[in-house]
C-alpha cells in the first residue's frame, strides 16, 4: 500500500492480483471511498501479478512492481489525477528492470529517483544473477523510468530483496 504525499489517496494491492485499488481518504473521518474506475488493471498479461505499489515523491506517479511470469520488464507507472486520484497507465509501461519480479519500490524523497528490488531467480543457481537494487530516474513530466544504476546484494546466494529503507 502507499499513500500520496498530500494524504488524499491510498493505493493498494495484494500479491496475487493484477489490479491496483485506489481510494480517496476523508481527512476528517479517515474513511475510504473507492476512486471512480477503481480497481485499475496493470499492463502485461492477465497472469501478471502486482507485488508492490509506491507513490513517487512528487505525488504525480504511482510505481507498480510486477511479477510478469517470466523474465521481463517489471515496473508499471501510472499517472495520478490530482483531483480524483484516478490512475492512467503511462505509455512505455512496463519499464525495466527486466527481471523475474520487482519485489519492492522505494521513492527518494529529495530526488526524482526510485529504487526497485529485482529478483532474477527463485533460488541460488550458478550463473543466475543475484538479487539487486536498481536505481531509476523518474521523468517528472511523463513519469517514464530510466535505469541509472544497479547494485547487486554482496552475497551472491541472495535472490530476493525483501525490504529497502533509506535515511532522510
Amino acid at each position: 500500500m502507499s499513500i500520496d504525499p498530500t494524504g488524499q489517496f491510498l493505493y493498494a494491492s495484494y500479491e496475487a492480483t493484477n489490479e491496483v485499488a485506489a481510494f480517496a481518504i476523508d481527512a476528517t473521518s479517515g474513511t475510504l471511498t473507492a476512486v471512480p474506475g477503481s480497481p485499475f488493471a496493470v499492463g502485461g498479461s492477465a497472469t501478471t501479478i502486482v507485488t508492490t505499489v509506491a507513490v513517487d515523491a512528487s505525488g504525480k506517479f504511482l510505481i507498480v512492481g510486477l511479477e510478469p511470469g517470466a523474465v521481463s520488464n517489471c515496473l508499471d507507472v501510472f499517472s495520478i489525477d490530482s483531483g480524483t486520484g484516478a490512475l492512467a497507465l503511462v505509455p512505455g509501461s512496463p519499464f525495466p528492470p527486466s527481471a523475474l519480479l520487482c519485489t519492492n519500490v522505494v521513492s527518494n524523497p529529495s530526488e526524482p529517483l526510485v529504487y526497485a528490488g529485482a529478483s532474477y531467480g527463485i533460488q541460488p543457481v550458478p550463473g543466475v544473477q543475484p538479487a539487486a537494487v536498481v536505481t531509476l530516474s523518474v521523468d517528472t513530466t511523463t513519469g517514464a523510468l530510466t535505469p541509472v544504476g544497479q547494485t547487486s546484494v554482496p552475497d551472491t546466494t541472495k535472490v530476493n530483496v525483501d525490504a529497502i529503507a533509506l535515511t532522510h
Binding site: Y115, V153, D155, K158, N160, V161, I164, T167
Partner: peptide, 11 residues
Amino acid sequence: RFMYVNADQGP
C-alpha cells in the same frame, strides 16, 4: 545518506 536492504535466499 544510507540505504539498507534485507535480502534472502528463497524460495
